[in-house]
Structures are given as structure tokens and as C-alpha cells.
Nucleic acid binder design. Structure first.
Length: 279
DNA sequence: AACAAGACCTGCATGC
DNA sequence: TGCATGCAGGTCTTGT
């Protein structure tokens, strides 16, 4: 489910109920997520105050008052729900954090591809889950030169490279497709050929797509909800994702004449693009 | 080193 | 109705 815009939307929704609050109770209803929950998670979180909620790529980072950091990843189907303490748990509610304000934050994840882990703030960038991540696309210094350097030597399709979190942190299948559309670049082009002006176009397209998607509260296809339960709306603005056979919004290609949005499979994932507009 | 394929897990839409 | 199949927003491991 969640790519950078969905994760950022969740982070922003969670911040008002977690930042500055103390965690008074932790219930781990199920520990076998993508990796086992830390065995002493409840004990290490109980009594801690959350100083700040951050994000790195698709990870939400809760900085605690004892120098530890709680890392959360939503996997494919993870959701976070805010509710009043004591609400009845639902199927697939795996972890519940309750604050001193009587509010519960519920981690819900049917497929259990998500995870939680603990790290230390001081050495956070060397945490095994974060150490290899590529640049943050919304950092001010992310640009075509940074992106081109990351894509250098890539002989496979640029679309597959964009899904590699060591190239850029936070893109997933939706926003990789949408970014390539906005940059008018073919997803089949070799990654290493994205240099100079093309790299500048792609970097700018990535920033624009992610920024627009965050402003829309992310994309709600199946699972994504904001912590208060609201849907994101960016799915209504997709140019190509999940639009196989429909007209391309950017050109006059006609689906009836073999034009329009195509779906291909790259590295086992669906890619959507307009072969007329994207070169 | 980089890449594709498979594995992990559940739910849903589709077709017979 | 039941059942099989394929697909889904991610990433880790394996083998080439």
C-alpha cells in the first residue's frame, strides 16, 4: 500500500496525538510481522514520551525521550488508526499504543509485511533497515545530478531501478509510473541513460508527483486510510497507474487504434505508460 | 555488482 | 454456490 506520500500522510495524522504524549500501555496482539517484534517492545516503550515523529523513505520514526527510536513500516497492507483507548480490537490489529491522553494508535496489517523495530537516535542512519537507503527525494538538495549519480551503471529498466530503495528512498509502483509519465520518459529505458537534462526532468517530476500526492492525502486503492479514517484522493489524479487501455491524458493517442495506456510487466511488477508520449 | 524470480501473507475480483 | 486462479501500494533472499 503505502509509498512515501501515504507514509507521510500517516505521519502527519499521527503527530498531533503522539508528539509530546507519553505511552502508557503497549499491547502486542501478534508478534510475527515481517520480522518478529522486538521481544521487549512493550517494556521498552511503556512510560516513554514521544518527542518527535519523523520519516525516512517509507519508515515512520518515533523519537523517544530516552534516545531510542521506534521504526514503523506499513508493508503492503498496513494501516494506522487513531481511536479512543479501550475500543474493541479488530482482526489484524497487531499492536496498540495507548497514550496518557487516553488515545490509542492501532497498527493494523492483514498481510503482515509491515514491521516495527527499535533503534538508537544517535546511530539511526546506520540502523540495518535504514543504512542502505538512497536520497530523500523531498530534501532540498535532491536534483538531477544526485539522481543520475544513483542511476549510473544501471543497465536494467529505469522503472525497476526507481523501485530500488537504494536509488531513491520512498518511491513504489504507483509513483515510479507516474513520475516517468510526467518526465515523458519510457519505463523501458536503461537506468544509466538518464543523465543531464533527462535526469533533471525525472528528478523534478518525482518531486512534483510526491508533493501533489501528499497534498491529496496519498492514494487510497484498497488499504490506505489516514489515521482518522479518511481516504486519500490522489488515485483520482493518476495519469497512467491502473489505467490500462484508457486514453493518455497528455496526448491524442487513441485507445481504439492501439494507442492509450499500456500495461507491461517489469521485474514481476505491473508498469503503466503511454508509449507515444514516453520515450 | 546488478538483476530477475521467488518467497513471504491475506483478501478480493474474476471465471468456470 | 463453491473452487481455482491471479493480482495487489513492499522488500528480503536466492541464484545467475
Amino acid at each position: 500500500m503505502p509509498e512515501l506520500p501515504e507514509v507521510e500522510t500517516v505521519r502527519r495524522g499521527l503527530a498531533p496525538v503522539l508528539e509530546g504524549r507519553r505511552i502508557v500501555r503497549v499491547t502486542a496482539r501478534r508478534a510475527d510481522l515481517r520480522r518478529p517484534l522486538p521481544t521487549d517492545l512493550a517494556r521498552r516503550l511503556a512510560g516513554r514520551r514521544v518527542d518527535r515523529l519523523g520519516r525516512r523513505g517509507k519508515y515512520i520514526l518515533a523519537h523517544l525521550d530516552d534516545g531510542m527510536v521506534l521504526l514503523m513500516h506499513l508493508g503492503m497492507s498496513g494501516r494506522v488508526r487513531i481511536e479512543s483507548a479501550g475500543s474493541a480490537p479488530q482482526t489484524h490489529d497487531h499492536v496498540v499504543l495507548t497514550t496518557d491522553a487516553g488515545v490509542s494508535v492501532v497498527f493494523h496489517d492483514p498481510r503482515r509485511f509491515g514491521l516495527m523495530d527499535l533503534g538508537q537516535a544517535e546511530t539511526l542512519s546506520t540502523h540495518p533497515l535504514l543504512a542502505g537507503l538512497g536520497p530523500e527525494p523531498l530534501d532540498p538538495d535532491f536534483d538531477g545530478a544526485v539522481l543520475a549519480a544513483r542511476l549510473a551503471g544501471r543497465r536494467g529498466p529505469v522503472k525497476a531501478a526507481l523501485l530500488d530503495q537504494t536509488v531513491v528512498a520512498g518511491l513504489g509502483n504507483i509513483y515510479a509510473c507516474e513520475s516517468l509519465f510526467r518526465a515523458r520518459l519510457s519505463p523501458r529505458r536503461r537506468g544509466g541513460t538518464i543523465v543531464g537534462r533527462r535526469a533533471g526532468r525525472l528528478a523534478a517530476a518525482i518531486v512534483a508527483v510526491l508533493t501533489d500526492a501528499i497534498a491529496a492525502g496519498g492514494s487510497s486503492l484498497r488499504d490506505h486510510r489516514r489515521p482518522g479514517g479518511e481516504l486519500g484522493t490522489f488515485q483520482h489524479r493518476f495519469a497512467v497507474y491502473d489505467r490500462e487501455g484508457l486514453a493518455c491524458p497528455g496526448c491524442t493517442c487513441d485507445p481504439a487504434d492501439g494507442g492509450g495506456i499500456r500495461r507491461i510487466v517489469q521485474s514481476g511488477r505491473s508498469t503503466f505508460y503511454c508509449a507515444m508520449r514516453q520515450r
